[in-house]
Computed example of a mutant assay.
Amino acid sequence: MEKIMSTHTKKMTTTLSSVLLAGACSLVLSMSATAAPVVAHTAISKSAPIFYGDGGKYPFSDAVRVGDTLYMSGQIGFKDGKLVKGGIKAETKQVFNNIQAVLLKYGYQKSNIIKCSAMLTDMDDFGDFNKVYQTELAKPYPVRSAFGVAELAAGASVEVECIAAK
């Protein structure tokens, strides 16, 4: 009888231990899944976006600043409301004049640019685009992507958008 009680007690103890262990693990997992790390609240400070410019008659902002990072809308070679004449080099030069104007308007400089995305309607213009790009920006150059596209607004040959950070 004592042997039967001992075996029965061991089985109950084992079962109870398993249940308690499973319950404790479930409790710990549920607590850790919902608990926010204290460091995240003190180390990360998020700034609300600030939208600049109203885009005039177009539905976009000139730029949006989040913290010290300025995200700029794409620029084409517009001057005085018209696309400049003279081909890809003239358009690219005007694009960077427009980028410079937006940067200065919001307290940034070309040296603050960290990323550019370039869109070209003719990838055969890539070499001429790069020649102007190199005269407008200094080493170390920002990271960059370049895309061949079918068409750009207002018949532009090139559009460049940038991100700048202080």
Rank of each mutant, 00 (worst) to 15 (best):
L20H: 02
L21F: 14
A22Q: 05
G23H: 08
L27C: 14
L29E: 12
S30W: 14
S32L: 15
T34Q: 15
T34N: 14
A35G: 02
A36C: 11
P37H: 15
P37L: 12
T42Y: 11
T42H: 11
T42V: 14
T42W: 12
P49T: 05
I50P: 00
F51S: 09
F51A: 07
G53H: 02
D54Q: 07
G56R: 01
K57T: 08
F60V: 02
F60R: 08
S61F: 08
D62W: 00
A63L: 03
V64T: 06
V64K: 00
T69D: 01
T69P: 03
G74M: 06
G74V: 02
I76R: 04
G77Y: 01
K79L: 10
K82N: 11
K85E: 13
K85N: 12
K85Q: 15
K89T: 07
A90H: 04
E91G: 04
E91Y: 04
K93P: 02
N97V: 10
N98R: 04
N98A: 04
L104R: 09
L104Q: 13
Y106M: 07
Y106I: 01
K110A: 05
C116D: 06
S117R: 08
A118V: 14
A118F: 08
M119L: 13
L120A: 03
L120T: 03
D122G: 05
D122A: 06
D122E: 05
D124L: 14
D125H: 05
D125Y: 07
G127W: 09
F129C: 00
F129Q: 05
N130S: 15
N130Q: 12
K131Y: 09
E136D: 06
L137H: 05
A138Y: 10
K139Q: 15
P142D: 03
R144I: 11
A146P: 05
G148P: 01
G148V: 05
G148D: 09
V149D: 07
A150G: 11
E151N: 10
L152I: 08
A153C: 09
A154V: 12
S157Q: 14
V160P: 01
I163C: 06
A164M: 00
A165V: 09
